[in-house]
Design a protein around this nucleic acid. Structure first.
Lengths: 193, 193
DNA sequence: TTTATATACGGAGGGCCCCTCCGTTTGGCA
DNA sequence: TGCCAAACGGAGGGGCCCTCCGTATATAAA
């Protein structure tokens, strides 16, 4: 927050930016491997950074949790554009659905840690919902326009399917199963010859 | 557990029993005043007991949380019998409903701390549900038999009403409001002349 | 009553964590 | 190249969890 929008008192130093990114990455890895209770000192260690640096960038635990979440949402949305740049629209949609699974895993890991944010968390989730809706609409639209998938597909249906797949994330083996189901879903979406 | 059912290798010492009770009491007070994250050392301090003693009686945090919960349920159930011994059945029911509020508060405070018990927690809750169902059935039955309340009252309806009152426990002022509503409910239940 | 001993007690101490504070280093502009 | 705000790192105070073990005592047997 405070670091994101800085008035030009000087400039944002490159090392500061780098460490910030490292910390977010380390936090994500820590959540994935240790769970939501991973210690802040552990995150700093993983990032190869002093504990003081962590606290300067993220004054509270929630701050860093939120940062991880934001970055994940952004990467998911950016992923749509990126994939459309290098793959056929149909393939891009397919690949993006796989990306979505990773996002779900993150959300699940991070949700608990966000519990204390009371009101703020729901606003955060709401904003991310819009971002994702936009991304899926774009992907589906392009895929239809290109004739890769059936023309009567509602983007929201695709999103609902993905959300549906997310129930029961947590059980072991969930991700493998979800990936298979995504392949099936994609087959079903494809335009018939 | 291990302490509850002891084979007669010797006897359960009186001081041990006393401290166990003190610890449960202190834990309840701690949950009420500090919340579910109250530290075990704080509980021991409140009980006027060394930390070692706490750990001997309750090897894990869950163990003491569960003990508080069990005691609360038992007191609620025993309360029904006790109240019936000293008051008219109608008054006993009225007073017992007030007791129920205290139980709800405890459950709310303790529920989060039970999160880690995974399967065990639901079994614990289920057992307590039966205990409470029995108590309310007895109270209502006696009150009807005595002509204190209308004869067409289903005990489960009373229980449902009480559970309904419990929604929104957490907001400040909830308990006072719930107590007033219990008076209203009791008026409604009373047999007409 | 006295004694023996299983039972119970208490708290020091090791390890980890949170968070602050401040002396040191360094990136970037002039 | 030199300056200095920006950024760094980690020691240190305080807390919590949990174990371990020497000490005290309730109780049953003598």
């Amino acid at each position: 927050m405070s670091v994101e929008s800085r008035e030009p008192g000087r400039t944002q130093r490159a090392d500061g930016l780098r460490n910030r990114e490292r910390l977010i990455g380390a936090a994500k890895a820590g959540f994935a491997e240790t769970g939501p209770e991973v210690s802040l000192e552990e995150i700093a260690r993983r990032a190869g950074v002093g504990i003081g640096t962590l606290y300067r960038h993220f004054p509270t635990r929630e701050a860093i949790v939120e940062a991880v979440y934001r970055r994940e949402v952004r990467q998911l949305a950016d992923g749509a554009t990126r994939l459309l740049g290098s793959l056929s629209p149909g393939e891009a949609l397919h690949e993006w659905m796989r990306l979505f699974l990773d996002y779900v895993a993150t959300k699940r890991l991070i949700g608990p840690a966000l519990g204390s944010m009371v009101g703020g968390a729901s606003a955060l989730y709401a904003a991310s919902g819009e971002t994702i809706t936009g991304a899926v609409a774009m992907l589906v639209g392009r895929a239809i326009a290109n004739g890769d998938i059936r023309a009567d597909v509602d983007p929201m249906d695709v999103l609902r399917a993905l959300v549906g797949l997310s129930y029961g994330a947590a059980e072991p083996g969930w991700e493998a199963s979800a990936r298979r189901l995504i392949d099936v879903l994609m087959d079903g979406l494809r335009a018939r010859a």
